[in-house]
Design a protein around this nucleic acid. Sequence first.
DNA 1: AATATTTTTATAACATGTGTCAATTATTTC
DNA 2: GAAATAATTGACACATGTTATAAAAATATT
Lengths: 215, 215
Amino acid sequence: MSRREEAKTFNRARICAAAEAIIRGEGMDKLTMRRLAEVAGVSLRTPYNLFGSKTDVLIALLDEAGFEFAPRQTGESGASAIAHLFGGLGRIAAFFASDEAYYRGIYAAIMASDHPEVRSTGVGRAVVSAQALVAEAVAHGELRADTDAASLGRHLAIALLAVLGMWGSGFFSNRESIAQVRRAWLAVLLQHCSDAARPSLASAYRDLCTAEIDQ
Amino acid sequence: MSRREEAKTFNRARICAAAEAIIRGEGMDKLTMRRLAEVAGVSLRTPYNLFGSKTDVLIALLDEAGFEFAPRQTGESGASAIAHLFGGLGRIAAFFASDEAYYRGIYAAIMASDHPEVRSTGVGRAVVSAQALVAEAVAHGELRADTDAASLGRHLAIALLAVLGMWGSGFFSNRESIAQVRRAWLAVLLQHCSDAARPSLASAYRDLCTAEIDQ
DNA sequence: AATATTTTTATAACATGTGTCAATTATTTC
DNA sequence: GAAATAATTGACACATGTTATAAAAATATT
């Protein structure tokens, strides 16, 4: 990496660190580009040079933290693909739960911005991943052979992202959001699962309903 | 109504009409408060006096058009409550479809704004209505007696609103959005329906899946 | 009709995201 | 080391939602 690229990388990191510090210390509404530049010790123009827009800075913050919309692509095709689907959901949940207020603020700000490309690519990736896992589940006999993997995968991904959007807006706690997605996923998967996979999905669905009554 | 109230009502109407004219004629991004005041023939301050904020003007536009989040409360308890649920969905769909670009712009702008109260009340109303219809369906024996109407109604309402949010952001066509909600609703209702209601729901679900393949 | 109250208006201002543009500084190339 | 190139800076500007303030107009009260 040339020294110029090094300097850019360093400045990007400084800006991200400053953004995080402001959000954590002063709150999301204090994160203005002017304050960001000030805290990062950089001119107002530099974040635009290095990221493009305020929204892009926030996206970088999420990326940096390792957030991925989609359940991770799995190489180990021996394990249950449906379990991988829910594993991906659990990973997203854990990520956001690790610092709920912080990530919610960032996510909400990204969603509220009018940068359609951002969200489209996020949706696209999630859909593709979900479709791959559904196809795998069909191949493994967890889902019936007549299942349209593309359609079902898309449905599952959208169900997740739609709830995530509302979570970002502050409607639901983490727990409520997860419960909503799990319930939606289980119900739809139960319409397509093989007889072998049905019992565990059905009992998971029942457990979810009783758990909701408990709390 | 006093003359003062009359004048306010008249001005409110003028402002709404001007907003609609701008959105339709020049596009959503040309709807600025200054232009709105100009077209409405009113001072910049007046829309703030009469509505509160730009977002409130847009909400008034939706309300004026008769939009309701929730399926209409039904007095005729003889008919199928589940049918009423889907009827409400159809009504919302028809409303938005009647002028897709126009309403999508308004809805997206409202969602993108940071006025949490607005959205909360919308969510609250939808949840209550759905819960009422689910309870009715339980009472009629369409859904099993062990169904938790509050929980299920809430789940259904959220599933709808979450997709509506993504629709507003421009991800999906009307048709895709409806299909997503119908599929989610049918799958979950199938987990709770009585044996009598199952066949029609199951066949509706199958039809939806094959319809998706067709298009 | 005179006074008091409420609304609207006009004008200015502020904070914010973003863009412009020339000057400066740092780096690369020769 | 000199010339070329790239990145950063600084100062300013613009559009926008929103608020402040005082003057003017309309309406209500007596």
